[in-house]
């Protein structure tokens, strides 16, 4: 299919971060991750659990845009207190957005500038410290640029690999940053020192383009594969079942458009 859009590449790439997760709570922030987690659940990870965003686990999958397909089927009650218990228990994989991320995966969405008097107050710490030390985390970055991929984040809200290492093996044994997906490529930490590595480039994106948009030195393997395209059946799920109104394109505009 030659008409595959960049947003759909991103959705398949984020969906893939949940591969192999099984019966855990999949939490997502941002439009692409919301579609991606649902895509994973409707295709290769049918046991993933999701909430309605309020206080219930839902047995059916609600679309991200368009009309609600059906009434939610509640399979469990999960108020915030239970969410905290659940995530400290570890059966969760969250995809968070990063305002800044560094080469070891230290994450910031708290504020820009000094914390005492920030230039820009962002979301605050929210649940990032607890998430990153207790269960698997991945990141979604809709606008890959040197302002986001920085040498040093202004404030650490999510734990990176260098800081996890400094904590010692025992305290950091549940820490895992599985992958970072941006609008340009996919990244992992599969290097001896757990620094960020370019895992694949999205179709139409060059390695040079990614290097230029990254404010730190990425590990770049000799051969960099292309990010996979969603399958025909995945495209049907994305386009017809989950996002008929195409809100995905608002988060990730197609390069030519």
């Amino acid at each position: 299919m030659s008409d595959i859009r960049r947003s759909e590449i991103c959705i398949a790439a984020v969906a893939d971060v949940f591969r192999g997760d099984g019966e855990i709570l999949a939490s997502s922030f941002g439009t692409v991750p919301a579609i991606a987690a649902r895509l994973a659940r409707l295709s290769f990870e049918p046991d993933l659990m999701m909430t309605d965003g309020i206080a219930c686990l839902t047995a059916n999958v609600a679309p991200v845009s368009g009309a609600e397909a059906e009434d939610p089927i509640f399979e469990g009650w999960m108020p915030f207190r239970t969410v905290f218990d659940h995530l400290w228990n570890g059966r969760r994989h969250v995809v968070m957005i990063a305002s800044q991320i560094d080469r070891f995966g230290n994450h910031n969405f708290a504020c820009i500038g000094p914390h005492e008097k920030p230039k820009a107050q962002l979301l605050g710490m929210r649940g990032a410290p607890g998430n990153t030390i207790h269960h698997t985390t991945s990141y979604w970055i809709p606008n890959h640029s040197p302002k986001v991929f920085v040498e040093k984040v202004d404030v650490v809200s999510g734990v990176g690999y260098d800081r996890a290492k400094a904590l010692g093996e025992r305290s950091a044994r549940f820490h895992e940053i599985r992958r970072v997906v941006s609008n340009l490529g996919v990244f992992d930490f599969d290097t001896p020192e757990h620094s960020m590595r370019l895992a694949s480039t999205h179709p139409g994106v060059s390695v040079e383009q990614i290097v230029e948009a990254t404010g730190f030195e990425l590990a770049i393997p000799d051969a960099v594969p292309e990010t996979r395209a969603p399958s025909a059946s995945e495209l049907v799920i994305i386009r017809e079942r989950l996002d008929p109104a195409n809100v995905r394109e608002r988060e990730v505009p197609h390069p030519e458009s």
Binding site: M125, P129, I133, V156, S157, G158, G160, L167, S171
Partner: peptide
Amino acid sequence: PTRAGLGTDVPGI
């Protein structure tokens, strides 16, 4: 006791 906050800037703040 908790693990939440370890390794972040929460203790620094």
